[in-house]
């Protein structure tokens, strides 16, 4: 479980929240604090007050994978295989272990054909896949995705959805502006002005939002 208590940071104010294993989606209006919340979960930002414990450990004591909305911002190496291996290199893992881990994750994600290409050649969707591979290669306990889907087409979104389901990461926390994506998660958080207004299963949270544009259009249009 991820347990938050008395959390305060910038405009974020969450008194108490428990997040179960699985895929948790975070939704809310622009400026509601979704990215600030994700930065707290990943340990990039530390709370001004209160704490977050991921299976009893602070985020900075936990293996965290992070995928930015704009993967270009996080690119360190020019070759795809080097980019995917980056965190294994920084933790001084042996070359043989690094190489086999990169091959394994590339095979799982069906991106073997990208390994020898340069990052510059990739399309936006391919860059997201590589960023996801780089985040997953060290088998993190928590994977945090900041609006990774805002520049992806439907095919790529479904591909990543499948990868997230099969990667066996205990906690995936993602923010999204695609309500259909949020509806496919296991748990849902709705933030507004830094406060947590609703949390629970997608069905429960969306029931509270049924009079708003946040209710999935595909649910309104059941055929």
């Amino acid at each position: 479980m991820i347990v938050m208590s008395g959390l305060r940071c910038r405009n974020i104010r969450i008194d108490s929240l428990t997040i179960p294993h699985g895929i948790t989606s975070v939704i809310g209006p622009n400026g509601s604090g979704k990215t600030s919340f994700l930065r707290l979960c990943s340990g990039i930002t530390e709370p001004e007050a209160g704490e977050i414990l991921i299976d009893c450990k602070k985020p900075r004591e936990t293996d965290v994978g992070w995928v930015n909305e704009f993967p270009d911002k996080n690119i360190l190496f020019s070759r795809v295989s080097d980019e995917i291996a980056s965190c294994l290199r920084f933790s001084h893992r042996p070359c043989s272990e690094k190489d086999s881990a990169v091959l394994a994750i590339a095979e799982t994600m069906d991106i073997m054909h990208l390994l020898d290409r340069t990052m510059r050649e990739l399309s936006g969707g391919e860059k997201v896949l590589v960023a996801l591979a780089a985040a997953l290669v060290q088998r993190p306990k928590i994977l945090v995705l900041d609006e990774y889907d805002s520049h992806l087409d439907e095919t790529r979104c479904f591909q990543i959805e499948h990868i997230l389901r099969s990667c066996a990461v205990p906690y995936v926390i993602r923010c999204t502006q695609q309500m259909e994506t949020a509806a496919r998660g296991d748990y849902l958080l709705y933030l507004e002005e830094g406060s947590l207004l609703y949390n629970g299963s997608p069905a429960r949270v969306f029931a509270s939002l049924c009079q708003t544009p946040f209710y999935p259009l595909s649910w309104r249009c059941e055929v």
Partner: peptide, 13 residues
């Protein structure tokens, strides 16, 4: 070009 990216559901509508 991609005017809806990054907008929340209310703003998209």
């Amino acid at each position: 070009d991609e005017p809806f990216s990054s907008l929340d559901a209310r703003e998209k509508e």
